[in-house]
Simulated assay, not measured.
Amino acid sequence: MNVTTAFRNLDSHGRHRGPEVIRHEAALLEKRLARFRPDLVRLEVTVSQTRGKTRIRADLRLALPSGVLAARHEGFEIEPVLRKPFAALTRRLDRHLSKLRREPEWKRPARRARIGGLLPPARDRAEADRRALYFDLIEDHLDHLYNTVRRELTYLEASDAVPAGRLSVRGLVDATILSGLDRFEERPTEFSVGDWLTRLTYRTIEAEARAARRAIPDDVTPLDEVPDEPIGDPTAADQEMFDFYQPDDLLLLEDLVADEDGEEAETWMARREAALALHRALADLPALWRKVVQQIHIEDETSEQTAAVLDISAEEVARIDEAARAFLHQRLVEAGHAPDSVAATLADAPAHTAQIPQPLEDRDRIAAALAADRDGPSHDAPNTPAHAGH
């Protein structure tokens, strides 16, 4: 870091003590700038005193490749006049580095903890009853919610719209349920609870995917840390260990294809290849087009229901459906499937799509969080005699 100082009309004490304080504070500041090239960082310190007056003013200007930060302070003693603007400059630098790392977008410990634990205990009996009513409304739709999240997240990861592993099915399901709990009294009455949950699911996935795209990768080194030494190429033993411990819950397009029994091997393989090609093409569709296709051809919804779920007009649904089917037809033909089999593949899209029940562990966890008779003193506390007068 290049440091430039200028002293104007300072007395002898200021000229003697000022450089010592600046060297000490600049060294502390430089530790936060380890990731910047030293020749690209410049600190300018100007300390001035009006001739014949005792008031001192310090102006600091830190020029970085990513911006310029400044601080100023006035007083009557040289040391506090210098140390206070350095402290202010350090705080502004920390905020600046935080923005460069995009910490406000990915560093959300409170929200992560809330989703991880789903919900804290209910504050009172009214809140517990409200949660129980909400769970009664959504219980029959949890499998559909789970499959919608699993399918859409798989498409997003397959098309590189979301970094693989950044989002999880459980986290998105939890986020959707929490979003619904916050507003389920305000749900539209013109369509069913299932359609309302589907709309919430799509909106939640879209918001979380947008945040995941903006967030920096988990393995990025912070700007204020010295970079690690580069890692060497993996050995054969490293590769064998990695292959052995591959996680079992990776999202793959192949997992979206239903496992059909009772067919000859050649027929089963041909149907599976056609279904996999269909899902690859679905992953390449624009998000809104894919949702229209899913609602109409996989969920077997009407155009009016699809329009209500996606909050667009029925005419827009018809236009998107026609364009999306033409795109899928072209992609299936390019993948080597005969034109006469393309229509059958699209018609059998629901049969080609695997529907997996939500894991019992997740369902039990959600049920426990929303149950009215959940253990906890906070449920019944307001109904005890000690609280009767409040």
Rank of each mutant, 00 (worst) to 15 (best):
A209S: 05
A212S: 07
L197W: 04
I216E: 07
R280G: 08
P222G: 14
A211Y: 01
A281L: 07
T201K: 01
D243P: 00
T302V: 01
A308P: 00
D233Q: 12
R199C: 00
A211F: 03
L252R: 15
P188V: 01
V226G: 00
Q239T: 11
Q295M: 15
S192P: 00
E316S: 12
Q239H: 12
A277F: 08
T204V: 13
A236C: 00
L282W: 03
L310M: 02
P286Y: 15
I312V: 06
A237F: 08
P217C: 04
P227Y: 08
A275D: 03
A211N: 00
E190V: 12
M269A: 10
F244G: 09
L282Q: 09
H297V: 08
A258F: 08
A215D: 09
S303G: 02
I296D: 13
A237Y: 01
D219M: 12
T189H: 07
D311P: 01
T235R: 00
V220I: 13
A207H: 06
A283I: 10
R210E: 02
A274M: 02
D300N: 12
D243Y: 15
A281E: 09
G194V: 02
E260S: 09
E263R: 04
A258Q: 05
R290K: 04
A265L: 05
A265F: 02
A236V: 06
A277M: 09
Q305P: 00
E208G: 05
W196H: 14
V220G: 05
A237N: 04
F191M: 05
D249L: 13
V309A: 04
L310P: 02
G194D: 07
T235P: 01
W289D: 15
L310R: 01
E240G: 13
T198R: 13
E225G: 07
R213Q: 10
A287T: 10
L310W: 03
I296P: 03
E304T: 13
R272A: 02
E266Y: 09
I216G: 01
M269W: 03
A307R: 00
D243V: 14
D224R: 13
L251M: 14
P222E: 11
F242G: 04
L197K: 03
T198L: 10
P222F: 11
A258G: 02
Q295S: 15
T302S: 11
I298F: 05
F191L: 09
Y202Q: 09
I231M: 07
L197E: 06
A277P: 10
P188K: 03
Y245W: 15
